[in-house]
Structures are given as C-alpha cells and as structure tokens.
Write a protein that binds this DNA or RNA. Structure first.
Lengths: 147, 147
DNA sequence: TGTTAATTGAAAAGCATTATTATTTGATTG
DNA sequence: CAATCAAATAATAATGCTTTTCAATTAACA
C-alpha cells in the first residue's frame, strides 16, 4: 500500500497542474481516495463527507471521481452486479480478490500476469492495453464465522 | 466452440426440467444464446428477433436472460462501462480479449489460470469460487485499418 | 377442447448516473 | 487586500438502462 499522504499530494499536484481548483469538497474526496481503505463506493464517500459538509451533493462526488479518473489517479472497479468501487491508492490495474459475503476486497501479489498478457497478445494478435482480473470467493473471516 | 445445436438442446432441456414453458420468443432467444456469435448484447438480441416477431418486447429479452442465467446456462459479461454482453455457448467463466475499437470479443486459451487461482487461494486465505479475466486492447483488424 | 398457471407486451416505475442552472467560491490580478 | 471571473457547487431535473406491474395471451397437460 502506498503512503496515503504521498498519494494525496500526488493527486493534488496533478489537479493543480491541470488548472483545477482545490475546493474543500474536492480535497475531502481526494483524501478518502488517497487512502481508499476498503475500496470505497461513491455512496460511502458521500456518506463520510456528509458528516463534515452536510450539504455535500452526491453529484459532486460523481463529478470529482470522473475528473480524477480522467487524470489517471483513481482505478474504477465496476462489478458485474453494477456496483462500483474505487482505488485511488493504487490506480494502476491490478488483480482483486473479493469476498462475496462481506464485500471485502484484497489485493493479491501476482507477477505471473505480465507473462500471461504477452501470451495472450501473441495468441490473439491483439495489442493489449489494459486488463481486469478479479477472483470472487469467501474470505477466511467469513468462512470461520459460518461455523 | 461448442456445437450451437447441442447447446440449444441443452438449454431447452434445462428449461423443461425446471418446468418452464417453451414460447416462440423464448426459443428465439435461446437459439441466439446457444450460438452467441460475437457475444451478443440484450439490444442486439432484441433487434434480431424483432425482424421475426415485430412485437417482441425488450422486457422479454431481459426476463429470459435472467431466467437462463439463473439456470447457469449463460455467462453474463458486465463491462466497466456498464454494458453487458452474453455467452450462452460457453457459460463457464473464461478469459476474454476485447477490442476497444470494434468491440469484438475473442476467447483465448489460457491454462495457466487454474494455477493462478490456487496461488491466490493460498496467499489470501480465500475460498475462490469464481473469477473474471478480461484483456482490453486493439485487434489486428483495427490495427491494420488505422494505417 | 378446456383449464390453469406461466409468459408476454406495453407502459410505468426504479435506480444509478449525468446534465442543467442559478449561486457560490478559489485563484489571479491590480 | 478587494475585485474579477472562470470553475465548482447544491439542488433538482433528466437520462438511460433494467425491472416491475398488470391485463391479455398462450403453452402444457388432462
């Protein structure tokens, strides 16, 4: 996990460099994304910031995520059920392991993926630009809790 | 690729076994899913069947896909942009390679995935039940066409 | 054929996301 | 350290895809 403080500064700098204003709402959103603990959803970001800014609009969360996404500083994880989660701590594509019970998301280490990418490129004659790898299952905690 | 005729029969049989009626609309949908050429979308299925049944409703396509999905006979591919494509020819989870230009979807052979799954299970202490692997890029045709 | 419960078409409702608009505000300049 | 102005915001309306509703239809089975 990258240092949330450094990620915060990096995203802020990117916003500055591209001529965007640093509003309190925007800073609050960036702060949460920089850490991205538990891979937050739009809704969870909104709820958390509402405690501080009671007038914070959901549209503002969406707008800022679109903006930060366009700067390549957050990874959007759209799931088959239509839900979205975000990772601004590590915005590069990387595999995820998702617990279908408690919705926990874990980042595994998998270095065999690069090799696989090359293999696929050769086999299909595609120029591979991006990828997405998710494993779905039940985490140790939920297995234990089941009894 | 599985034989579309056999897949058609298999899906029909599953529907029968679970006490569902075989309406002409349903049969038309199953027929397209059994082949799943190009991994059709709800919209493309609807358009194709409308030529035969002008009154075919989009809701009917959705309803039948939900049903067939619940029987495990079609794989739903929800993409990050929110679009959905279907594969009733090979309903087991398998990797896809998607062209971001022409939306073509290709199924590559990748047998190293099983090994990866075990690796992840050990590392994260999850019981892995399912997975999803997509590569995004530009296909040979679109590369050539670009000039 | 008649009966019945499942299925359908058409339209309304849901729901997440995006667009609109009047207002507010951060950043720059004099 | 105001004044200015483009950008950002809050609130709300609109959009687009998917699901639900419900009366009418129809496949399945006796």
């Amino acid at each position: 996990m990258a240092d949330p403080k450094k990620r915060f500064e990096a995203i802020i700098q990117k916003l500055r460099d591209n001529g965007h204003k640093l509003t309190p709402q925007r800073l609050a959103i960036v702060k949460i994304l920089a850490k991205s603990e538990g891979h937050p959803s739009v809704e969870s970001i909104h709820v958390r910031i509402k405690k501080e800014f009671s007038t914070m609009s959901l549209a503002t969360v969406y707008r800022n995520i679109v903006l930060i996404k366009s700067l390549g500083e957050v990874l959007e994880l759209g799931f088959p059920d239509g839900s979205n989660r975000y990772d601004g701590n590590n915005p590069e594509p990387h595999p995820h392991v998702i617990c279908i019970k408690c919705k926990k998301i874990v980042d595994p280490d998998l270095d065999s993926l690069d090799e696989m990418k090359k293999e696929v490129a050769v086999e299909t004659n595609f120029k591979i630009l991006n990828h997405r790898l998710d494993f779905f299952g039940i985490c140790g905690d939920c297995m234990a809790a089941k009894v």
